[in-house]
Amino acid sequence: MLRLPTFELHKPTTVAAALEAAAASGPATRFVAGGTDLLPNLKHEMIEADHLVSLAGIESLRGIRLDGDDLVIGPMTSLTDVASSELVQERAPALAQAAGVVAGPQHRNQGTLGGNVMLDTRCQWINQSYFWRSALGFCLKKDGTECHVIEGGKRCVAAVSNDSIAPLYTVGAKLVFQSLATPEMIAAGAPEGVQTRPVPVDALFKADGAYNKKVGLQELLTEIRIPALPAGHRGSYQKLRLRGSIDFPQLGIAARLDLDEAGVIVHADVVAIVVAARPVRVKKAPDQLVGQTPGTPGFEAALAELCDLATRSVKALPNIPGDTEWRQRMVPVLIEDAIRACV
């Protein structure tokens, strides 16, 4: 059997204890939620960790609740529970859809929303064993200096592959991270103890597939907050994959349309994933769609033009396995499907 490397496992029951365990264990420490992404990556020796801090015992990180106007989802809530939650289906339908199509049924039972948000990037040249990677001389993301996707590439372009991220972008989610102040931070004037940092989801990512997030490994995601959305909010998530189960997305498109009482689009957002290291927002979406009324010729023309324009900004790279040309060709198809599913 492909074995896990050795590590010490910590099993805190509170967030504070988790943060302490992580702080005490040093930089080669990882939080583990459901483990469905981290464990294969550990087995592949893509990640080196001397310590794992399991979040399985922290009850406060589970559950879906309303906090004032915000919908708050605990990061340890399983994807199955997110997908089947009436609250999520009603307030953020695209997120419920996305959670319901992550991998296979067992992955969704053990995998969590927080884990999916923090999923590592993927590439056809990285998600294999150490032996396999050694046979091609490794790559930029881990252990190597060369990019096999882009000849001469200096920055890793492994693809952001978390289904849930695209819908979270469209609903303007905020991610709350907590960490313990390090001695350096305290020396620089920060207060001692637990630091809390809300990060708007579209500020989480950077264009570096080696590690595509702007939060540190010692920062723990403790809440996913979704603001109240207007009554006319519609959302959809479309996933491209060969099989109807288990597969990671080859392309993912989330769309949001908010309609006013007259049925006119007042807000539009389209976000693509699995294209590059970070999600790509189709910036032309509001220009094209806001002010249109679904069902009218004007809307149809605007939608057609949006799909056409999007192919210029959403460019699939040959980073993940599969047919890049086909993925690119599916960009307008999935955008159209996502928008139509909203109206």
């Binding site: 059997m1 496992l9 099993k11 483990g35 794992l52 399991s54 053990q110």
Partner: peptide, 18 residues
Amino acid sequence: VDGKPELACLLLAGASEG
């Protein structure tokens, strides 16, 4: 696990207590 199908190859034994 608690009645739901999960993958034992991706569960740490130590995290399966309780």
